[in-house]
Nucleic acid binder design. Structure first.
Lengths: 226, 226
DNA sequence: CCGCAAAACTAACCTACGGCAATCTCATTC
DNA sequence: GAATGAGATTGCCGTAGGTTAGTTTTGCGG
């Protein structure tokens, strides 16, 4: 988000509480009225929408450093759930303190920008679900996650830890977990990418990006993160 | 967006130009550097992402009254195209004038809110593509569009004009136009909904909402728009 | 009123993915 | 180290939706 140190400190000071969220726990349910937002410190948090049978579609995945629901500040209630994927720690920032923060117009713009990045990611996900087949979706997602993790120093560009079950991946990519298993096997057998027990290794990054038609520009990362 | 008259006037005064966009014209291409945003006056505008074969996925559809690319103000370049669907008129608002507008913190918050609504709609679209079958997607989209058009007085709750071809609908719902044709025929034959030559008539709104698992809350419309 | 293009529609065939039903492999706990 | 349970894996079969290759309708300019 390119916050300068002063802004960083200001946000840090606005934190009221550090919350521990056990793995696979719904932290916020759709429709709840919220008076604070959450910032991921470590672990993975997800935003999900459930269908009438309780089957979930992920609409976002949040890594350490991400504001999960900054938008709840302006919306005050959300139309989706917020749940932990892994065990996680989040910093709680009360809305009234955000209100004080955004008195600084520059910071206000940066926070706005952060929510716009989320929206850009939503659009990339729409493309993924609308135009790619199952393997393309997985490829696209892995490229995206690799790029994002790399930007926060959690990937070396080929290998990274990612504590998602095949079922989580399925809920992200809009396929069944059985089919996700088949796709992962294919990727493995073809020597392109190994996704196994919370660890991902991309053997042919260029190929994966082509297969998923991935172009990182929507992440608006620093140019140095080649 | 619930702007008060003064705010409305302020935005109107910020318009530099009214632009006519012929039907099916790309107005802004991904990657272009933008110095203004556009507000739809009449017609339909769409936001699309193309795959490598040029096949498009709609990631948003904008009706009269919508800001199409307000987010370009903070992002300055977009990762998707903006194209007219029908013949349209748009009001151009230069970014430097928006900069002046957002000096008013209240208005800044409302514009932020407007971009958050877009994001909420993206998430609903993600749910649509990720969890619904083709008929569910169409049902969901028609319910959404009906609700949105109703909010601006362009639908009576059952019938409305919608100048989309079957191919447009296909690009919105992530299916082929051939399959879209099959779905529309089914809806017609089962007496649920008639979509024909730029006109939609919903015969059984409740059924359609159930079929598409549609819940309008993500549109954050006034409560009176039952 | 004709000619043309775009859109709507149809049919026959094919495949990617879903659904179901097992089985297998771990890691955890007592 | 047996018991438990979550997750991974596999096979089989059914179907929603894609593909290809048309024909028919609609709307529009001349």
């Amino acid at each position: 988000m390119m916050l300068d140190p002063a802004e960083h400190a200001a946000i840090e000071k606005a934190v009221s509480e550090i919350k521990i969220v056990p793995a696979r726990t719904v932290m916020v349910e759709a429709g709840e009225t919220l008076r604070h937002s959450a910032l991921v410190i470590d672990g993975l948090m997800g935003r999900t929408i459930s269908d009438r049978d309780g089957l979930r579609q992920f609409v976002g995945l949040h890594l350490p450093g991400d504001f999960v629901d900054l938008h709840s500040y302006a919306l005050s209630q959300l139309e989706h759930d917020i749940a932990s994927v892994t065990h996680a720690r989040v910093a709680i920032v009360p809305h009234d303190r955000i209100h004080a923060l955004v008195a600084d117009t520059t910071l206000a713009r940066k926070l706005w920008f952060a929510t716009l990045l989320d929206a850009a990611m939503h659009r990339a996900w729409l493309f993924r679900l609308g135009r790619l087949d199952a393997m393309g979706r997985v490829a696209h997602f892995l490229c995206e996650t690799n790029a994002r993790l790399r930007a926060v120093g959690l990937s070396d560009g080929r290998r990274f830890a990612l504590d998602l079950t095949q079922n989580d991946l399925a809920e992200i990519c809009g396929v069944t977990s059985i089919h996700m298993n088949r796709i992962l096997r294919q990727l493995r057998e073809e020597g392109l990418c190994v996704v196994r027990s919370s660890h991902v290794e991309i053997l042919r990054p260029d190929w994966l990006a082509a297969r998923g038609q991935f172009d990182a520009s929507y992440l608006y990362l620093d140019p140095d993160a080649a």
